[in-house]
Design a protein around this nucleic acid. Structure first.
Length: 376
RNA sequence: GUGGGUAUGGCGUAGUUGGUUAACGCGUCAGUUUGUGGCACUGAAGACCGUGGGUUCGAAUCCCACUAUCCACC
């Protein structure tokens, strides 16, 4: 149950109640594709890092270790020991990212497993069944994330099919939630807006799925190669058609400034692999911008990653030590950077919420966002 | 001491019927990364090819000497 507390311009401050606890929005969901944050961060660490929601992936967990196995073991919460909300992505994005191995039909998508090449079929019902087995707090609809650029006609056909799939997702989710023995009988379902970069198709599809009265709405198919201004434009275009009393999720986004600009355009939830992936490649997000800890200039730098950061890493470790760990291939280097970056992202959201609470979001945005002044 | 082998960017190597800007891996330096098929990807710097002579239009490549190093033998 989402409650919109108030708005500053289009930006929203809200509270999202779930069976696994409350989420203060705007919020960033920490990506744990295979039921683990890459880089060695545990569920216990995540609490310390101020994470509110963990995000896992249907496709990956279906392939390994198998959703039925996880169901037999009591679901994702018990499996991972994470007690707060979990959102599971539907596998729809893999239709896009594994494009060379797929075949899309009205029924669903035929994949080849990236692990062993085995043929896999996933459609709306399969995705809902898997996510029900996982027992996540929020299930995402099974959609097609259209690649960029995409022809108009292809996009029009695709979003019509994604809408039909959504109806099937909703029916199947209702059926599964009502079944005795379901791990999370209150599992929520979010629909996903598509339409590539076409204003009219985006609006048309948003209107269509808004009528289905789902538990939340996501904007998908963005940050897939289009210019940032185009992404912002699509958000501006779609926002008026998103239900006001439902949480809104911008999938896969983004940089700190992308997130601030997303909040400014009425988005409540975000997720992105950047803080973890970039950390593994040596980048630290800081309030002074990105630092590449591989750079030679940090060789003798005994300052913390970010002098303005209160995270456990910055309280204890120096840039020089972390650079050494990275150069030596020690996994601790990546682990410390991932921890710092997740703290940074979760703290960014905290500061955004504080700014909203103080009715100073626009000032915060102007101070930090690259669209206006640029720091992060 | 005798015989034989080897000497190519920081390290390890490729490169001989002599022919345009000497290749590769690692390392170094820098960049990329947006619902994660990723200790990934892209790019850059860096060598007058042990030293000195010689042959040749032309030598990392052939010849001589020297130096260093390795192996075997006395």
């Amino acid at each position: 149950m989402y409650q919109l507390l108030f708005r500053e311009g289009t930006a929203r401050r809200g509270v999202f109640e779930t069976v696994h606890g409350t989420v203060q929005t705007p919020a960033f969901m920490n990506v744990a594709t295979s039921a683990a944050i890459k880089g060695g961060i545990s569920a216990g660490d995540l609490e310390t890092l101020k994470c509110q929601v963990m995000l896992c992936n249907t496709y990956h967990l279906h392939i390994r270790p198998g959703d039925e196995l996880i169901a037999d073991l009591g679901g994702l919460h018990r499996f991972t020991t994470w007690k707060r909300p979990i959102l599971t992505d539907s596998g729809g994005f893999q239709v896009f990212s594994l494009a060379s191995l797929r075949k899309i039909t009205e029924e669903g998508v035929h994949f080849s497993s990236h692990v062993d090449g085995k043929k896999i079929f996933m459609g709306p019902e399969e995705s809902m069944r898997i996510q029900s087995h996982l027992g996540s707090t929020i299930a995402m609809a099974f959609d097609e994330c259209i690649e960029n650029p995409a022809p108009y006609d292809y996009t029009a056909n695709s979003i019509a099919r994604t809408a039909r799939w959504l109806a099937r997702c909703k029916a199947e989710m209702a059926r599964l939630n009502a079944q005795p023995g379901t791990i999370n009988p209150h599992q929520l379902l979010f629909g996903i807006n598509q339409g590539a970069t076409y204003d009219d198709l985006r609006i048309q599809h948003m209107q269509q799925i808004a009528e289905m009265d789902l538990d939340g709405y996501a904007v998908g198919g963005l940050a897939v190669g289009e210019p940032t201004e185009v992404m912002y434009h699509i958000l501006d275009v779609v926002e008026p058609y998103m239900p006001i009393n439902k949480p809104r999720y911008l999938m896969g986004v983004g940089t700190p400034s992308n997130i601030i600009e997303g909040v400014a355009r009425g988005i409540d939830l975000f997720d992105c692999v950047m803080p973890s992936r970039n950390a593994r490649h040596g980048h630290a997000f800081t309030w002074q911008g990105i630092r590449n800890l591989n750079n030679a200039k940090y060789e003798r730098d005994m300052l913390p990653l970010d002098e303005d950061c209160e995270c456990p890493v910055c309280q204890n470790y120096s840039r020089a030590y972390i650079r050494h760990l990275l150069k030596s291939g020690e996994i601790l280097g990546g682990r410390l950077l991932v921890a710092h970056n997740l703290w940074f992202y979760n703290t960014l959201m905290e500061r955004i919420r504080e700014a909203l609470d103080n009715h100073s979001f626009e000032a915060f945005r102007a101070e930090n966002c690259e669209q206006v002044g640029t720091r992060i």
